[in-house]
């Protein structure tokens, strides 16, 4: 087990280092950087010598491998360089904006899980066969909706038609309810799809037939016998969902004009502020690797049969 743990952590570290090197090579070592974009502007009236001085200040004149070493060392120390556009350290930019995005995406995730469970339970427990298959096909429809479009349509319906959620001076709940719903719907769709498929597979197994033959009700079978068996595939797509959650936050914050990491990302791309984007990309990769590691470690807790397999392999 500890061997397995070590090799998993080693793999994760390699992936992270590669992601870092790739993002560095792509974003930092390329000509046409953010310093030139900002300071070559004729309105600033800087001479080439002054620009060169600024480049020395940002460390952009050093050879690539020196820059790479510096950047790795700085990242390890928790310093991500300066945002050229905003003129503040990237770390501060992220520290200020991370909490809002974390709150939005964790609320979105909770709402998505609730919605997915609701749909999956309804698709299993609904009284009529055609109703069940109708509900089961809903997630594939939800998965085809563009996130930004969901946000705009929700604003139109709930703010402008029904006037339930005010746009001007909303309280905290009113400010968050539509963004959370926007974020939750596209996350809930794949969750529900995987969960429904997993429930179907479990339902086809002989032990369910035995339980049913003993006279158990549908709800009893679902909650007592199927749920724990069916939850594992849902957990393993958590890594994919992490990416969707982050991407969803970028779009949702843009649509609703909320401050957060998503807005920072969007502006970094518009201004070619590579230091900011690189920090966000590396942090996202870190989050992804961490989430997947947790999932792999949690899986045997839910399904003890996996423990035996890992033990046999190690």
């Amino acid at each position: 087990m500890s061997n397995y743990l070590l090799s998993r952590i080693g793999q994760a570290a390699i992936v992270l280092l590669l992601a870092f090197a790739a993002s560095f090579l792509l974003l930092q070592a390329l000509p046409g950087d953010a310093i030139l974009i900002k300071y070559q502007n004729p309105e600033m009236g800087l001479t080439p010598e002054q620009i060169a001085e600024i480049r020395v200040l940002y460390g952009a004149d050093a050879p690539i491998w020196v820059q790479f070493g510096n950047t790795v060392w700085n990242f390890v120390q928790g310093s991500f360089g300066y945002s050229v556009q905003a003129g503040v350290p990237v770390r501060d930019l992220i520290a200020v904006n991370l909490p809002a995005t974390l709150r939005l995406s964790s609320l979105g995730l909770v709402a998505a899980i609730a919605l997915a469970l609701l749909v999956a339970f309804a698709a299993t427990l609904a009284p009529l066969r055609w109703l069940r298959s109708l509900i089961a096909s809903a997630p594939s429809l939800l998965a085809a909706l563009p996130v930004f479009w969901i946000g705009i349509v929700l604003i139109q319906i709930f703010s402008f038609r029904l006037r339930l959620v005010p746009v001007i001076n909303p309280n905290e709940f009113q400010q968050l309810v539509l963004p959370v719903a926007t974020l939750a719907i596209p996350i809930a769709a794949p969750l529900a799809q995987v969960f429904i498929r997993s429930l179907d597979e479990i339902e086809a197994q002989p032990f369910i037939a035995v339980v049913r033959a003993k006279g158990a009700s549908r709800a009893w079978i679902l909650f007592r016998h199927m749920l724990r068996n069916a939850i594992l595939p849902v957990l393993t797509i958590a890594g994919v969902l992490f990416g969707d959650l982050l991407a969803g936050a970028v779009v949702t914050e843009t649509v609703f004009g909320l401050n957060g990491l998503g807005r920072v990302t969007e502006q970094a791309v518009s201004n070619q502020d590579t230091a900011v984007l690189q920090a966000i990309v590396v942090l996202a990769a870190l989050g992804f690797v961490f989430v997947n590691l947790l999932v792999d470690l949690a899986a045997p807790l839910i399904d003890p049969r996996l423990n035996r397999k890992i033990g046999a392999a190690a």
Partner: peptide
């Protein structure tokens, strides 16, 4: 390991 949208933005 990098979320799709962020990878797309990096390339853009």
């Amino acid at each position: 390991s990098v979320p799709g949208l962020l990878l797309q933005l990096s390339i853009i």
